Amino acid sequence: MSIFDRLNQSSLNRSFEKLIKDEQEKLYKIAFSYVKNEQDALDIVQEAIIKGYQSFHKLDDKAYFSTWMVRILINTSIDFLSKKKDVIKLDPDWLKSGHQQEQFSIMAMDIDMVFKKLKTDQKTLLLLRFYYGYSIPEIAKILDTPEGTIKSRLHRTLQLVKEKLGTGGKHYGEATK
């Protein structure tokens, strides 16, 4: 290996390190939203960073680093979930006493139940659009899918969620079956 190759490799390493430091928190939040477990989320982020580092030389335009890493992370999360079919546990501190809190908890559990029943690609769309605030064009780039397809899938997913949550029992906040 020549000195120029070593210098070029060294600058690529520093570039990747700088870019990944800016993305760490976002990557963790996305991974956590998939697995709901701190250790698993950290493992997924670590694996995604390793995959990104190994393929960093293939990324032509560094301006797309963020969307490229999110795509790698999403794929890594989906792989992890398909390998490990595990029960997601509720955090006991999340549930608090009080009538309003009880209704909120029931509503949150209804939403969580509907969310768990969605397909992985539907969950990904909802998370990217509403939790992380990505625009339709950004989601299209991340998922490497035409914008029209993203819009129609998002619309169908929202309609499905609306149907499932539609009535919410006789009174709002009452558990549905």
Rank of each mutant, 00 (worst) to 15 (best):
F56C: 03
F56A: 06
F56Q: 00
H57L: 00
H57G: 00
H57R: 15
L59F: 15
D61G: 07
K62E: 06
K62Y: 07
A63C: 06
Y64F: 15
S66P: 05
T67Q: 07
W68G: 09
W68L: 00
M69P: 00
V70F: 09
V70Y: 13
I72H: 06
I72G: 07
I72C: 02
I74W: 02
N75Y: 11
S77T: 02
I78P: 03
D79P: 00
F80D: 06
S82Q: 09
K84R: 14
D86A: 12
D86V: 11
V87R: 12
I88D: 10
K89N: 11
L90Q: 12
L90H: 11
L90W: 13
P92M: 09
P92Q: 13
P92I: 07
D93G: 09
D93S: 13
W94D: 14
W94K: 14
W94T: 05
L95A: 13
K96F: 09
G98R: 08
G98F: 08
H99R: 14
H99T: 11
E102K: 14
E102W: 12
Q103G: 02
Q103A: 00
F104K: 11
F104P: 00
S105D: 12
S105T: 01
S105P: 04
S105I: 02
S105G: 14
S105E: 04
I106R: 02
I106Y: 06
M109C: 09
M109D: 08
D110Y: 03
I111T: 03
I111D: 03
I111Y: 02
D112N: 10
V114Q: 08
V114M: 01
K117V: 05
L118N: 03
K119H: 13
T120P: 00
T120E: 12
D121S: 10
Q122K: 05
Q122C: 05
Q122M: 05
K123L: 11
K123W: 10
T124G: 03
T124R: 06
L125T: 01
L126D: 02
L126K: 09
L126M: 13
L127W: 11
R129S: 10
R129E: 09
Y132D: 06
S135Q: 11
S135G: 07
I136L: 08
P137T: 08
E138P: 01
E138N: 06
I139A: 04
K141T: 15
K141G: 14
I142N: 07
L143H: 05
T145I: 13
T145G: 02
G148E: 05
T149N: 03
T149P: 00
I150S: 08
K151E: 07
K151P: 01
S152L: 12
R153V: 10
H155L: 13
R156A: 05
R156N: 11
T157N: 07
L158K: 15
Q159D: 14
V161Y: 00
V161H: 05
K162L: 13
K162N: 15
